[in-house]
């Protein structure tokens, strides 16, 4: 099975870069894994993910009651917008995935999305906040176990 690990985020927006950091750790621990770090979102992801059987996305999330450093596992369907696009100027991962399917692209059959609860993704900075930073090695380990990498 051709597997891709995709670390998504912006490494100069504090915790937004956590997905990238975790992807780097996964690459270090499992050098045989195909790992891509990306600042792409939405449609741009189609350029990267087509042709794989399995896709593992590592990204950040802010939920109402979450604690920084908590890890969630989601399926792509969980990210589907309730209705329309709500005025963002990019389409989200779920919509991009659906477009890819609609256009008949060779989309990954299995998609796991790992989302790390974060604290701050709107302040410029090259390092994650303390709680999040401290959990990165543990989270990488969790993903390896869960996905049997």
């Amino acid at each position: 099975m051709k597997t891709l690990v995709l670390g998504v985020g912006n490494s100069i927006l504090t915790d937004d870069g956590v997905g990238i950091e975790i992807a780097r750790q996964l690459r270090e621990r499992k050098p045989e894994l195909e790992v891509i770090e990306t600042g792409e979102s939405g449609i741009g992801l189609l350029d990267i993910i087509v042709g794989y059987d399995k896709l593992i996305i590592v990204d950040s999330i802010i939920t109402e009651k979450g604690k920084p450093g908590e890890l969630y596992k989601l399926g792509v369907e969980a990210l589907k917008p309730a209705e329309n696009l709500s005025s963002s100027h990019g389409v989200d991962i779920a919509t991009a995935y659906e477009i890819g399917q609609g256009l008949g692209y060779d989309m990954p059959e299995h998609v796991s999305i790992y989302a790390v609860e974060i604290e701050d993704n709107t302040t410029f900075g090259e390092k994650c906040t303390g709680e999040v930073e401290g959990r990165i090695p543990f989270i990488a380990e969790q993903i390896i176990k869960e996905e049997r990498l």
Partner: peptide, 13 residues
């Protein structure tokens, strides 16, 4: 804040 990549990848209103 579109440089932020956190999920779900859109900004609801």
């Amino acid at each position: 804040a579109c440089a932020t990549h956190s999920l779900p990848g859109r900004t609801p209103i």
